[in-house]
C-alpha cells in the first residue's frame, strides 16, 4: 500500500530544512515583523492611531528602558509576583498530583468524587478569587490560595487520567509476572502517566501566572498585575505594554523550561533522550561487568 514515491520524501525528512533555508525563513519573519512595526509607528505618527491608547513601538521600547533601568521599579513587583507563583504552583500541583493518584487508583473514591469534579470543572475557578480574599484577608495568603486553587485542577485531572489509562496488556503482563502492587505502581503506572502529568504541570504553571494577575487586579497593593493596572489607569499604555511583554517572555520561559523538564524526566518519549539514557546505562553496565 502507498508504495508510490512516498518513501523517498519521508526518508529525506522534509521537516528538517537545510540551515540556509532556515536562515532565510528567519530573515523573512524578521522582515515581516519589522514592516509591521514600521507601519504601526508611521500610522501612529501620522495620527491614524491615537498614541494615547495605542502606544508606538518606539515608546514601548523606551518604557522597557524606563521600567527596567531608569526607574527600575519593575524588579520588586516581578519578585513579588513570581514568588507567589512559585509558592502557589508548588503547593497546588503537589496536592493535585497526590490526590489525582489516590483517586485514580481507587475506583470507589473516584465514583463518589466524580460529580464534584464535573461541577468544579465547569466553575470558572478564578472566580473564587474575591471569595478567598474576603475569607483569608488581604495579603500573601489569599493570593497563594488563589494560585493554588488555579494550579490544582490540571495536574489533578491529568494524573487521574494518566493513572487510569495504563494499557490493559501491560497491566496483565505485570500481573502474570506476579508483580506486587507497589512494583506495578512504581514501574508501570507512574512512568506511564508521567508524560500526561507533565502536560498538566505545564498548564498549571501557565494558569498560575494568570492566577497571580487576577489576584493582584483585585487586591491592588503590589506585584506585576497591580503595576499593569496602575499604568493603565494613568493611561501610561507604553509602560503597561512593557509589563505585558515581560509576561510574554516569562510565559515563553515557562513553556520552554517545562519542555526541557519533560525531556529530562520522560526521556523515553524522545529519540535523543532515549539514546542518551541507554548509552549511560550501557556504560554503567559495562563498568559493572
Amino acid at each position: 500500500m502507498a508504495m508510490s514515491g512516498r518513501i523517498a520524501p519521508s526518508q529525506a525528512n522534509p521537516a528538517q530544512p537545510g540551515a540556509s533555508l532556515r536562515l532565510r525563513r528567519l530573515a523573512n519573519h524578521l522582515g515581516l515583523f519589522l514592516v509591521l512595526l514600521v507601519l504601526w509607528e508611521t500610522g501612529s505618527r501620522l495620527g491614524w492611531l491615537d498614541p494615547l491608547f495605542y502606544p508606538r513601538p518606539s515608546a514601548i521600547l523606551r518604557s522597557f528602558w524606563l521600567v527596567y533601568f531608569e526607574n527600575a521599579n519593575i524588579w520588586w513587583h516581578l519578585y513579588v509576583s513570581l514568588g507567589l507563583v512559585l509558592a502557589g504552583f508548588t503547593a497546588g500541583s503537589i496536592l493535585g498530583v497526590g490526590l489525582g493518584a489516590v483517586v485514580g487508583l481507587n475506583p470507589l473514591v473516584r465514583r463518589y468524587l466524580q460529580p464534584y469534579v464535573i461541577v468544579l470543572e465547569a466553575t470558572p475557578r478564578i472566580a473564587v478569587a474575591p471569595l478567598l480574599i474576603a475569607a483569608l484577608g488581604f495579603g500573601a495568603q489569599s493570593k497563594i490560595a488563589i494560585i493554588m486553587l488555579v494550579c490544582f485542577f490540571a495536574p489533578f485531572i491529568n494524573t487521574l487520567s494518566g493513572v487510569m489509562n495504563v494499557p490493559a496488556e501491560k497491566l496483565e503482563l505485570f500481573r502474570s509476572l506476579r508483580a506486587t502492587k507497589w512494583q506495578t505502581l512504581r514501574k508501570l503506572v507512574l512512568p506511564d502517566a508521567v508524560p500526561v502529568i507533565m502536560a498538566g504541570e505545564r498548564l498549571a504553571l501557565t494558569a498560575a501566572l494568570s492566577g497571580v494577575l487576577v489576584a493582584e487586579f483585585i487586591q491592588r497593593d503590589q506585584g506585576i498585575g497591580s503595576l499593569i493596572l496602575v499604568y493603565t489607569r494613568n493611561l501610561n499604555m507604553a509602560s503597561a505594554f512593557a509589563c505585558i511583554f515581560t509576561l510574554t517572555i516569562i510565559g515563553f520561559g515557562i513553556f520552554k523550561g517545562m519542555e526541557l523538564l519533560d525531556r529530562w524526566i520522560a526521556f523515553w518519549k524522545h529519540q535523543d533522550g532515549r539514546e542518551r539514557v541507554s548509552a549511560a546505562r550501557a556504560r554503567a553496565h559495562a563498568e559493572e561487568a
Binding site: 478564578i126 494568570s210 499593569i228 505585558i244 510574554t248 515563553f252
Partner: peptide
C-alpha cells in the same frame, strides 16, 4: 499565535478595558 498563547491573556484586562 505562540506569542499570544504564552502571554497570559488576562494580563491584557486593564488595557482592553481602556480600549
Amino acid at each position: 499565535a505562540i506569542v499570544l498563547n504564552v502571554t497570559p491573556g488576562i494580563a491584557l484586562t486593564p488595557i482592553i478595558i481602556a480600549w
